[in-house]
Design a protein around this nucleic acid. Sequence first.
DNA 1: CTTGTTTTTTACTTATTAGTAAGTATATTT
DNA 2: AAATATACTTACTAATAAGTAAAAAACAAG
Lengths: 186, 186
Amino acid sequence: MSVTREKILELGETLIRTKGYNAFSYQDISSELGIKNAAVHYYFPSKKNLGTSIVKTNIQRFEEMVENMESRQFDEWQQLEALVKIYIKSHREKKKCVVGSFSPDIKTLDESTQKELKKMVEMILNWLAKLLEKGRDRGVFSFADSAESKALVIFSSLVASLQLAAVLGKLDYKSYSQSILDDLKP
Amino acid sequence: MSVTREKILELGETLIRTKGYNAFSYQDISSELGIKNAAVHYYFPSKKNLGTSIVKTNIQRFEEMVENMESRQFDEWQQLEALVKIYIKSHREKKKCVVGSFSPDIKTLDESTQKELKKMVEMILNWLAKLLEKGRDRGVFSFADSAESKALVIFSSLVASLQLAAVLGKLDYKSYSQSILDDLKP
DNA sequence: CTTGTTTTTTACTTATTAGTAAGTATATTT
DNA sequence: AAATATACTTACTAATAAGTAAAAAACAAG
């Protein structure tokens, strides 16, 4: 695959995760990459196109991570920690997560982008709910309500915490994310 | 105060809470209210101006709610429920909350809007942490980690849940919000 | 070397945006 | 009634947005 295409995808994602979908332009990309406006349109005819591709890329990335963890026989704690680590990294890089960047703008997105984003959120929540369920069955997690509810609470917390961290400026993210994990200890 | 000004403030808030800050325009407001573009600029010279005013209005609204609850001697449960009810209402109206609408766009906001938003988030988190602390002391709440951490987890959950609800389309918000409350039961 | 394909630029268009200067109508005050 | 402030409209500007058609450059294969 074209290196320019990959650079556009990567920079596009960064821009969306820092400025937001409706605040970045093709000019932002072209000027940063030292190419022309039209070159970006060559790879991604429309902005909607680019948005959808970025979400799809992230779905793939998530699927690969899950496969990888399964093949390496990660236990429930390790898998949950892997998810939390993604958010710790995002916080360190001063970025929001993909879901937290696209979701607030959902109404203004192309239909196909909306569809992919929905798919991504459903995938993550289903995976997380199953993980919590399995962990509870094996006695490594402890929580009161349903696994689906707990998955939603945990995922929501992670998503919004990056947004609030950006607002507050300073935030002890390590200890915050640790408290999410601690909450599940039996 | 002018009725037009109030209408602009209200519609502006609705637009931000449905489309997002960077997706709404002064045309959206003027056409909806049947006035001209320049009339909006008359009351709010710049968009930054309007954004800041909307956040300030919401800070005031929050302060009034807290005062009101104190004067009516709401207990800790009632106060927490009042917060959750705001989010249930937002969900019913298919709106995000103010914090969840502005936060993702923080980098693109005017400095004064950023400052007000930060102030708002700090106010809510401080209030919530104190509420949780008091509730725990009185034995009506039960939670493991610090009140500050718990406040952040709860608030994050509420903020992001509205965003995820918009993505997923359907979501049993009542039972979700109930699970947040249940989690605190001794 | 030439033909064909991929990649990129040039040079636009069209639409929308925030914002403004100057004028007008409607009240309010003196 | 005249002066003045308030609440707008008219009619712009300047900037930026996404998107496009056609030409040029870069590259590969026969």
